[in-house]
Design a protein around this nucleic acid. Sequence first.
DNA 1: GATGAAACGAATGGCTC
DNA 2: GAGCCATTCGTTTCATC
Lengths: 216, 216
Amino acid sequence: MLTGKGRVPAAGSVAEPGDTPERGFPPTRPRQPEAGSPLGAPARNARFPGLRWPSLIVGLGQTGSMRLDQLDEQIIRILTREGRRSFAAIGQEVGLSAPATKRRVDRLVAGGTITGFAAQVDPAAMGWGTEAYIELHCSGQPRPAVLTTDLEGIPEVVSACTVTGEAQALLRVRAADVRHFEKVLERLTALSYVSHTKTTLVLTPLFERTGAAPVG
Amino acid sequence: MLTGKGRVPAAGSVAEPGDTPERGFPPTRPRQPEAGSPLGAPARNARFPGLRWPSLIVGLGQTGSMRLDQLDEQIIRILTREGRRSFAAIGQEVGLSAPATKRRVDRLVAGGTITGFAAQVDPAAMGWGTEAYIELHCSGQPRPAVLTTDLEGIPEVVSACTVTGEAQALLRVRAADVRHFEKVLERLTALSYVSHTKTTLVLTPLFERTGAAPVG
DNA sequence: GATGAAACGAATGGCTC
DNA sequence: GAGCCATTCGTTTCATC
């Protein structure tokens, strides 16, 4: 299913009509600005200006450093939008055999560049009517590890990060309705280090880009 | 690959150790609170209190109304964390044959509940060093459609929504570095209806939950 | 709707270059 | 690293209940 190139048009290809090469997959590094764009970005790798290939050198990932060449980036771009596409179909597009493509994907997964594969779900269809961002104002500076543990325990908290500014953390929360949302707020303010919160309700979700949503 | 049940432990199973049934997949509707949880939620479907099966009735999705039963929810929960898992393996877990599982997934995709499948990428490994939330303060109230068009044209804008409060929109932005980020800011303030912006820089991303990230 | 059988195609491991 | 080949396994269709 969803594996053949054009068999099931549904899955990953859902949001594709009209895609420009850039859309839906923010550039790995500052790229050439589109024609007429005010966003003038460095032409090449900012860290290794003379470098063309590999275009990216990173020292992250679980198993150590990881080089990404253009084929890797192409593969990632495809998988980012069509996570269930077959290796044969991916390989055909990037000019690789299916086994070679698989080996690269395996390497990307093992190296931590690809952190997983996930189905994207329409929150409204799942019964999530209420979405909000919550600023957590804390007494003192709670350790990130503590925040992670506490907040991950609240399933309605979809994402969380520590931030600059007056608040210590910014949370994204999904709830079924306002009443449900209020319960989440109560649970957050019950945390010992939380002095108060500030909620910004989402009115209209405009869009959400895949390929830039890390897990964990 | 990643299709067999335990063949490639990498992909979707990356973030699974210690998973509780609830973790990583916010409840479809308010569920029974965990033991000792202050989050007391309605026991059943809030909209159809007496209803047990189907547990959810929604009037959304592209092709019309969509019923989700418990098997659907189970399948979605699995695909949300292991987007490349095979139908055979999913079916085995939920007690369905592979063809039956595939039909359900196809129906969920066609109905808009599942909006797509995507690889999750580590932003740091992709060269994204800088992440921020940007409040867009506008003169007047720009129409959501206009905002969507304008903001989708900026690849660094990962997600956007209109919100309550003083700002009109809240954006999540990823950039390679601060210099790159500044270019994005310039591009945003160049929009005719934007009067000013307020940036909140992300210090430490704590976690990001899959299964609640809609596309489009 | 689910099941079971069968044909097809994809994934994967070994081998060679 | 890549491609090729062979095997295993998943997908998909069709007939059937």
